[in-house]
């Protein structure tokens, strides 16, 4: 990794002139993350009082394990948005990668090949997107809108919409447990921590904040913004590949469709977690917490007997409330 040797200033503005205390620094650095965390804790307390079965281990592990792939995809998405770009094609990409992985597994290739293929192919496809964004200077929303059509159309025309079944049992890693915990939960936690440390302390991670905050200034300080942009899309592709492994090995079959609007769910997780859509701020911890919040809300509504038909409306309302709260908080600070 190329070290720039330049000490970048902290990206989040400090509130006071003198060095703030540890608590204030935590609040100013992780404001939105704390809001989301508080919401999760409050939700847990309220729902458990209404229905104590909510807190049972079975329910909790199924909530978190089933949504871990969204959190993993949101890590890469957060990095892309922090760099000042966006990707609306990640849902279609996960669908394509899942089909590739499943096809390899059924064809009798060793399972590690079936697991590695989506990561590599994801990196390759997203590198092309990154090149078009960085060097051809096409806005990322346009490139990924086109990629969305190409990937979605390509997937259906190749598979014809059939499901892949007969997956070998050892391929289904998302159903396995390690140290008593489901693998997806472990993967989500470990990947989030590693990515968070890397984004905060590595020169590469800091440079992404610099590019997102002010691309011209970043270029002037000697950061190779074009190469970094391609790299961040490639890394995002690798996380999409990892998310695919968790997604594709959940069930005994792989459908050739992904949940509708999956890309928007992933983007929403990043944004609610505190990643500014304008680039330059936010952390991957926030996006994982936001994924957990959505999953908790979804499960909680069932436990307090809200009709399943109203689920999305309530989730939408809560997303809106979080966004407005964040805006009011920022206004109060400014």
């Amino acid at each position: 990794m190329a070290m720039t040797g330049i000490d970048l200033p902290p990206v989040r503005p400090r509130t006071g002139l003198q060095r703030p205390g540890a608590l204030r620094r935590l609040v100013s650095d992780y404001g939105q993350e704390l809001v989301v965390l508080t919401a999760i804790v409050a939700l847990f307390i309220v729902v458990t009082m209404v229905n104590p079965r909510f807190i049972s281990t079975n329910n909790l592990t199924s909530i978190f394990a089933g949504n871990a792939y969204i959190a993993v995809a949101a890590i890469g998405m957060s990095m892309v948005i922090i760099t000042g770009h966006i990707d609306v094609s990640v849902g279609a990409l996960i669908g394509v990668l899942a089909t590739i992985s499943g096809t390899l597994a059924v064809a009798g290739y060793p399972v590690w090949v079936a697991w590695f293929a989506p990561v590599l192919v994801g990196m390759a496809i997203n590198s092309v997107i990154g090149v078009l964004v960085a060097y051809a200077r096409i806005p990322s929303i346009v490139v990924t809108l086109g990629a969305l059509s190409i990937l979605r159309g390509g997937l259906i025309s190749v598979t014809g919409g059939t499901w892949i079944s007969g997956l070998p049992p050892e391929f289904l890693i998302a159903q396995k447990r390690l140290l008593g915990l489901p693998v997806p939960i472990i993967a989500m936690v470990v990947l989030t921590i590693l990515a968070a440390l890397w984004m905060r302390y590595s020169a590469f991670g800091r440079s992404l904040y610099a590019i997102g905050g002010n691309p011209e200034a970043a270029l002037a300080t000697g950061i190779p913004t074009e190469r970094r942009t391609v790299a961040v899309f490639a890394i995002h592709g690798a996380f999409a590949g990892l998310a695919t492994i968790l997604f594709a090995t959940q069930l005994q079959v792989i459908q050739s469709t992904v949940p509708p609007n999956l890309e928007l769910t992933v983007i929403t997780a990043s944004v609610i977690g505190g990643v500014s859509i304008l680039g330059g701020t936010g952390t991957v911890i926030g996006s994982t917490l936001a994924t957990i919040l959505f999953a908790t809300i979804g499960s909680a509504l069932i436990f307090v007997n809200v009709s399943a038909y109203w689920l999305r409306a309530v989730i939408g309302l809560l997303i809106l409330a979080t966004v407005l709260a964040d805006m009011l908080r920022r206004r109060g600070r400014a």
Partner: peptide, 27 residues
């Protein structure tokens, strides 16, 4: 009024309005 970037604001209402449609129609 709240200075929310349009992409985020309409992303949130995308979920909200579709949810209202689902809730009102009850399938």
């Amino acid at each position: 009024r709240f200075n929310v970037p349009p992409l985020i604001a309409t992303l949130a209402t995308l979920a909200l309005y579709r949810g209202l449609a689902e809730g009102i129609s009850q399938a």
